[in-house]
Each structure stands twice: as C-alpha cells, then as structure tokens.
Write a protein that binds this DNA or RNA. Structure first.
Length: 867
RNA sequence: GCCCGUGUAAUCCAACGGUAGAGAUAGGCGACUUAAAAUCGCUCCAGUGCGGGUUCGAAUCCCGCCACGGGCACCA
C-alpha cells in the first residue's frame, strides 16, 4: 500500500478547494433577519490599495478569518467583509510622476491586491466589497458631510494649520506626530494661516472620553491613548481686568485656589491684547521678542528643557480679588492655542512659573501649605527652593485662608463667579478635525460658494459631486481642482447666479470613518445604509487592525458613530465592541555598522555569521518592521508559492500571540509545513486503514484504555482550544500548539483504537484545524468521505466525561519544595490524601518522624507538609 | 518627567498563586537507507531582568530598581 501513498501538494489542493467554496457560496453572508441564531460581525481594517500585499496585511486578515470561521462553525451568522481605502496621495503622485490616471491606477492595484488576498483562502464575502473612491461610495461620504453641516458640526474658518510641504496639503492634528512630522510623508510640517473646513469633534469630546470605559473589549492602552489625546482638563476661567478699561485678560487655570499667589500674568506673544498692554518704553523690546518667537519653529518652542524666555510689557492688570496691580509679561512658554492663550503666574505652586519667575526676578508668594502639616503661625518669607504643586491648605489668601484642596478650588470659583470675574471651565487638548485637503484624489466637499448666498450645500439629489477627469495634476500650488474651471463653475442652487464649487477634497479618514456601516448594506443605491441593516450587525463584534490607528481612525470612527446616533441614523453609541491590535511583522535585518547601509538577506551568504558581501565586515543583525528600504521584507506570494497558504497562515498564528510583534523565521515556516504534512500522512494512513467519516461506526459498550486515553486527548484539545479562541483574549498560538499536541497523541494512539473512537478523533482534529488551515482540513474531510464541506459542519461538542481520569499524580511537597509524587485515585478526598501523604516514605524521610505543623491539601494536585 | 506594555532554555513562545515546559525552531544521539534527504524515536539546554516583601507555596500578588518597546509631554 505504501506505493499508493498520496502527497500533500498545496499548490494543487488550495486552488481546487477555493473553487469549490466559490461554487458552494460558502463565504456569502447569511440572511441576518433569520432569528434562529445570532449575528457576528468580524471586521479587519481595510487596506490602502498600494498594489502590494505585505505580511502585515496577511497577519491582520488571517487573524480575523480564524475568528470568522470559528464563529461560523459555532453556528453564528457571520459578516466578514473587505474593501479598499482607495483615495489618497500615492495614486495622485503616480499620476504626476508617470502620467497615469489615478482612478485607473487605483483600480488596477485593487484587482492585483484582491487576487493576492484571495490566495490566502479568507472567508470574505466579496459581494459586499466597498471601494471608497468610487462615486457609488463617495456619494454617501458627501451625504454624510452634509449631515454634519446640517447638524452645525461642519464649518469653515481661518486658522493656523499644519501644512505638509512635501504632500502640498494641510493635515489634521492627529496626523502630525510628536516631532512635528507628517504621518504620511514624514516631512516637518509648517504653520500656515488658511481658511479651511473643520468637523466639530470637540463638541463630542466629553462623550468620546466618558464612553471609553464602556469599551471593555479594547486594549487598555488604546483607551489610555485616546484619553490622553482628548486631554480633558477641569479648572476655571479667571478675568484680570485692565486698569483703565472695561475688558480684561482671561486666563485658564486648573488651580484657581492659588490665585492669591499670582505675581504676574503671562500672555502668549501672539495674544491680541499685547499691543494694548505694551507701554511706549517697552515697545522695542516687545517687538523684538515677538519677532524672535515668530522665527523659532513650533518644535523648538515646545521643547521642555529650554529656558523660559519672555519680556515685561510694561502694562498691568488688576488682581480680581485683592485689587492689586499685576504686571503683564509675554513669554514663549505660553501657547497661543491652548486655554485662553494666557496664564496667571503662580511661581510658588507651579514649576514652570517658578522657573520663569526665578530667572526674571519676579516675586514668589506662598499661598498653599501641606494640609496635614501644622498650620504655621507665620508663613516663611524665604523663597522656597522649588514649587509646591500638590494640593494643600490655603494661607495668605484673604477670606479663603484655611480651606483645603477641592473645597478651596470651588470656593474660589464660586467667589469669582459671584463677582463676575470668572467661572468653572473645562478645556481639552483635542482640536477640531481639519478635513480640507488641497489635493485632487479625494472625495470632493459638496458645497458651492455663491457671492449672494454664501456657502450653499449641494442638493442631495445632485450627489455625487463627481471628480472631474482630465485635470492637470502636474502643477504645484493650490488644489488641482482650482484649475478645472469648467467643473468649478456652476449655478448657485439657491439663486441661480454664477457660483463656484468648493475645490478642497476631504481627508481620506472621512471615507474610512463609516465604511464598516456601508458593509452592512453595501448594495444600497438609495441611501448610505438602511438603519435596519446597520442595527442588525453593529456594533462590530471583533475588529482587528494595527495599533497605529489607536487615535486616528478609531477616534474619528467613534465620533462619526456618535453623531449618526444623535441623528437617529444608527442605533449604537460605539461602533466596535472588541478591538484586537495585532503586532508588527518583523523581518531579519542586516546592517553594515560602518556605512549604516541595509543589506538584503539574499546577499548574506552565511546567516549564522553574516558579513557584508562587498566589504566582508560583520553585519549587525536585528529584527525590524518589514519595509522596502530595509530590504527585510518577505513577499506573501512567494511563501504561498512555496508552502501554500495554509502553512503561511499556521506560521503567522503560531509564531507569536496576536498582539505581540512577530519575528519572521524561515526555519519556523518550514516547521509548520512539516506539521501540515504530518496531518496529511496521519489522515492518509487512517484512510488506508479503512477509516471513513461518512456514516458513524457503532459506539462500543466499553472503551479500552487506549481508547480512553485518546478520547482524553481529543476532548482536552477541544476544551483548550475553546479557551484560547473564545476566552477574554485570543490566543491563536497556543491553540495551534494544542493541535500539534493532539496530532502527536493521534500519531501514536490512532492505530490502537476502534473505528468509532478513531472516527471521533479524526473528525475533531479536522474540525479544530479548519479555521486555521481551511484548505487542508476541507480536502482531508472530503477524502475521508465527510459529508459536504467541513466549513458547513458544527464545532465539536466537548464531552466532560472524557476528561475524567482514574488516577492522578499528586505532588508531595515539604515546606513548599517538591520532594516526591503519589499516584492516587482521582477522586480521593482531602483527608485520605493527607493520610496517604503522611504515611509516605517521603514524609518519613523529610519529617524524621515529627508531626508536621501544618498540612495543606489541594485534592487532585498536591500535599504540602510544613514541619 | 508621566502613563502603558514586555523581560522565562541557544531561539520563538507556554504555564486558574500549586511539579517552571504545552508546542515549536536550532543542536546532539539513534532507527530506517548503499548513501543522503525525508520520516520516526530519544536527548542536551533556563529556576523566570535585579533587590526586597506577602504566602505553607511566587514566573504569577505587593514595593523599589534596571533594560527594551510604545504613547503623552512647557496643555497652565
């Protein structure tokens, strides 16, 4: 029979299985209105269609696919869609560099990437594919924009904004990193004053923050990042009146209780009151300082370690409580766009103010002392060595003396409010979302500018406002749409006079903020989505994607969902119930220590002692995120060619837990391939031995020991894998390890059992394998005579009685150290176990006849004797 | 500086407070083979980053450090 042994040839088997799945329509989303089972929405972050699938994509989609397949086997109706985040600059840049049409370029990339994706055997319902750059999608993006406009949540204003000099467009705050670089181009952004479109995300700041605790299925760290980003800060607004005028300087402070410690007020150099508060003799100094600040970059200015510089204006304001005159300064450490752009200087109780006051000779007045300390009879006059910033008891503060902490804060705020010179105030770090982009390849903002009527929304029935083709993209400066004069010129929808279209396009994050809603009703030509369809599937049960969107996409999408919920368009406040942020895929990276040049792994002759092929010097070896520039990428297509998709999937799932970074290792890929071959041989030899899965063999009246052992392994695997896949955290790596363990047990145990137990074992192995290696499992299922596709079967039922053991090994400890073992009946009670332990030879030897002081018994586990 | 995460065998990774090893890679030995590959079997390798503490018992809980990764940061 050995000669008839068949071989595992994934290159042949996988396309065949995929054709079969397509014929059967296995991946089509079931009708969600069927009430007999629950719905499950498995979602991956959709890709930008660069044209090339990389390992990060593979990891993302394979994880989601395992979840989708497990849920299907467990009887859920699963929605598992895919689409394309298809607007964006690479298409436009390709157009500029090579003269290709952005739409055609994008569509070609999509076709290419879809084909690459499909080779992975993902159970995606392609009938619901969405593509954000197509008019049938962006029509609804525009419609949603008009919803925001109607709700007063979209507006246009002049503002200082981030300008990316490389991509020639503005960026939202979220798209600029801590170093002041663009998330896309990496260029240092510049500040420009421009008239731009914004979405009023700050109006939802409280909701976005307060609902974070609802997201129990999200990683803690993502929630923290969003909370930091929103940056809510509760405090008060206090007004310091000008000496000779009605109005005053408003400051924001989180410590209104320290107001009696104010020895100066500082404005941002850009503050509008600077001119009025500058005395003639200070004019030149102030001008010079403002010019200097204007010349320093944003990044330099916010660097914490630089000295705090500033100049006095000469003018003063009146303290709201004491009435004293307080000098006014400007300084570079006060930022114009946070709070009110002005702060009260309290050197004794704020470390920044302390540093500033120390270097400019300003008074330091102590007004807070530790609350638990003695109340000093006399407040020390010596200036302290550093600011005391903790909350405490007020002193030197007039009628507020003696108040402590929160009580002091609210007393001051109430007094300020009563006197009309202040009120409680909350400020946020979060800024409104700048959505204008001065580029062509994006969703046009559907408004028309009319000299008579102002900004007029494009009537809904005229949507979509389609992008014109044949636009000259080559030029620089301004949006390309500005130059499409035929497209731009339109009659005003209100008065009919000649008007012109808005030429800014939307940030692509607008398009991706609602795609998960469109999937639920992808073919709808009459509306963005039916509320009914959305409510059946949302919130998404499991979302999987990269942590790089912890703020960007995930915050915007939450914002969209909340606005749509307010407008009764969707029924949930949060779009994503569970979120898994998968780790990076890293490649082995070689770098020359002297030239800092990256060397491709193909050029490294001996990986155990890598040397530079040109210079012969030893190379640095480390793992880093795969990228073209580091020559450390592995092409998914090449891996599939060589080993098949199932091996690639198994490797990625096994090598590391989903949330952690994964180090690509060819030897481990090889190992996974061997494992799948082992399963193939296992099933093949079972088939040769006559095993068939079609009709169940009669169950024996009693089981032999070998049969009970094998059943224990089988049901142990079910239990463990359910734990790994359905528990709080997804642990695909240990689930795969359990599969290996089961296959090892079957390798030695299958021959010794009767047909019924063998059938159960093989069926279970294949069912448990099916979500991970769907092609192989389905092929073997068919070869063994299983009915239909394995992907239409039900998840194996755990039989707890199969897990029961007759005897167990109990550990004997003496003072917590393992000293021996006892083989005892599994159901032996604590008292009996203790007796057995005390009588044991180990106890005799270690206790030397003395009775233990204490005995800890964990039945079925251990006995600990404490002398 | 603040917050979060991670440190276990040569390597990647496991271990409800209860025998540190589930699984894999690499290495070693053996079987099969004329030989090699493949396959199968066996096997070497850590006391869990460091220092304390709690406990009968700590990789796991607590405190203080160190290293690496990530987020925020003159945000008043």
């Amino acid at each position: 029979m050995a000669s008839s042994e068949s071989r595992y040839v994934p290159a042949d088997l996988e396309p065949r299985r995929q054709r079969r799945w397509a014929e059967l329509g296995l991946d089509r989303t079931p009708d969600p209105s069927d009430e007999r089972s629950e719905n499950f929405y498995a979602l991956s972050m959709f890709p930008y269609p660069s044209g090339n699938l990389h390992m990060g994509h593979v990891r993302n989609y394979v994880i989601t696919d395992v979840i989708a397949r497990v849920q299907r086997l467990r009887g859920r109706r699963v929605l598992h869609p895919m689409g394309w985040d298809a607007f964006g600059l690479p298409a436009e840049n390709a157009a500029i560099e090579r003269g290709v049409d952005p739409a055609a370029w994008t569509e070609r990339n999509i076709a290419q990437m879809r084909a690459q994706l499909q080779r992975l055997g993902l159970s995606i319902d392609w009938e619901r594919e969405v593509t954000t750059c197509r008019p049938d999608y962006y029509r609804w993006t525009q419609w949603l924009f008009l919803q925001f406009l109607d709700a007063g949540l979209a507006y246009r204003r002049e503002a200082t904004v981030n300008w990316d000099p490389v991509d020639q467009t503005v960026l939202a705050n979220e798209q600029v990193d801590a170093e002041g670089r663009s998330w896309r181009s990496g260029a240092k952004v510049e500040k420009r004053k421009l008239r731009q479109w914004f979405l009023r995300i700050t109006a939802l700041a409280d909701a976005l923050l307060d609902d974070l605790p609802l997201l129990e299925g999200w990683p803690e760290r993502v929630r923290t990042m969003q909370a930091n980003w929103i940056g809510r800060s509760r405090g008060a607004l206090l007004r310091f009146p000008l000496l000779d005028a009605e109005d005053g300087v408003e400051v924001f402070t989180t410590r209104p209780d320290t107001v009696y410690g104010v020895s100066y007020v500082v404005l941002a150099p850009e503050h509008p009151l600077v001119e009025r508060l500058t005395s003639p003799d200070r004019q030149d100094a102030v001008e010079a300082f403002r010019a200097e600040v204007a010349a320093t970059s944003e990044q330099e200015r916010v660097a914490e370690d630089r000295p705090k510089r500033g100049v006095a204006l000469g003018g003063a304001v009146r303290h709201p409580f004491s009435g004293d005159a307080v000098p006014v300064w400007i300084a570079d450490y006060v930022l114009p766009d946070y709070g009110t752009g002005a702060v009260m200087g309290v050197p004794a109780h704020d470390s920044r103010d302390f540093a500033f006051a120390s270097s400019h000779g300003l008074a330091v007045r102590t007004v807070v002392v530790p609350a638990d300390g003695e109340i000093p009879g006399e407040i020390p006059n010596d200036p302290p060595g550093e600011a005391f910033t903790a909350p405490g008891r007020l002193v030197n503060s007039g009628r507020f003396d003696g108040l402590v902490g929160e009580a002091a804060i609210s007393a001051v705020v109430e007094a300020a409010a009563a006197a009309g010179c202040g009120e409680a105030r909350t400020t946020y770090r979060l800024r409104d979302w700048l959505i204008s982009r001065q580029r062509y390849w994006g969703c046009p903002i559907p408004v028309i500018h009319c000299d008579h009527c102002g900004v007029v929304p494009v009537p809904v029935e005229q949507l979509p406002v389609e992008l014109p083709s044949d636009v000259d993209l080559s030029g620089s400066g301004g949006s390309p749409l500005e130059r499409a004069s035929d497209w731009r010129r339109v009659p005003c929808p209100c008065c009919g006079a000649e008007a012109h279209r808005e030429t800014d396009t939307m940030d692509t994050f607008m398009c991706s903020s609602w795609y998960y809603l469109r999937y639920t009703d992808a073919g709808n030509g009459n509306e963005a989505f039916a509320r009914e369809a959305v409510d059946r599937w949302l919130p998404v049960d499991q979302y999987v994607g990269g942590v790089e969107h912890a703020i960007l996409h995930l915050l915007y999408s939450r914002f969209f969902t909340k606005v749509l919920a307010q407008r009764q368009l969707v029924g949930c406040r949060e779009p994503f119930r569970r979120l898994l942020t998968q780790g990076m895929v890293q490649g082995i990276t070689y770098r020359s220590p002297s030239s800092r040049r990256y060397v491709p792994s193909a050029a490294v002759a001996d990986p155990s002692a890598p040397t530079d092929p040109d210079t012969g010097e030893a190379l640095e070896v480390f793992y880093e995120k795969m990228s073209k520039s580091k020559h450390n990428g592995v092409d998914p297509g090449a891996v599939i060619d060589r080993y098949g998709a199932d091996t690639a999937r198994m490797f990625i799932l096994f090598k590391a837990p989903p949330e952690k970074d994964l180090e690509w290792d060819d030897a481990d890929v090889e190992g996974q391939y061997r494992f799948l071959q082992r399963i193939w041989r296992l099933c093949d030899s079972a088939a040769q031995g006559g095993l068939r899965l079609g009709s169940p063999a009669p169950w024996p009246r009693t089981l032999a020991d070998a049969e009970r052992d094998l059943r224990r392994a089988v049901h142990g695997a079910i239990e463990a894998i359910e734990d790994d896949l359905l528990g709080d955290e997804l642990q695909c790596n240990t689930a795969v390890a359990e599969l290996m363990k089961l296959s090892n047990a079957m390798g030695s145990g299958l021959a010794a059992v009767g047909p019924a137990v063998a059938q159960e074992a093989v069926t279970t192995l294949l069912l448990l394998l099916a979500p991970f290696a769907p092609h192989l499992a389905d092929e073997l299922w068919e070869q063994l005579g299983g009915e239909g596709s394995i992907h239409r079967q039900r998840w194996p039922q755990l039989d707890p009685t199969a897990l029961v053991r007759d005897t167990v090994t109990v550990v004997l400890q003496v003072k917590g150290k393992v000293r021996g073992q006892l083989e005892v009946p599994a159901d032996l009670g604590a008292a009996d176990l203790e007796q057995l332990a005390l009588a044991s030879e180990v106890a005799q030897r270690w206790l030397e006849g003395a009775a233990p002081r204490r005995v800890i018994v964990v039945p079925g586990k251990l006995v600990n004797l404490v002398p």
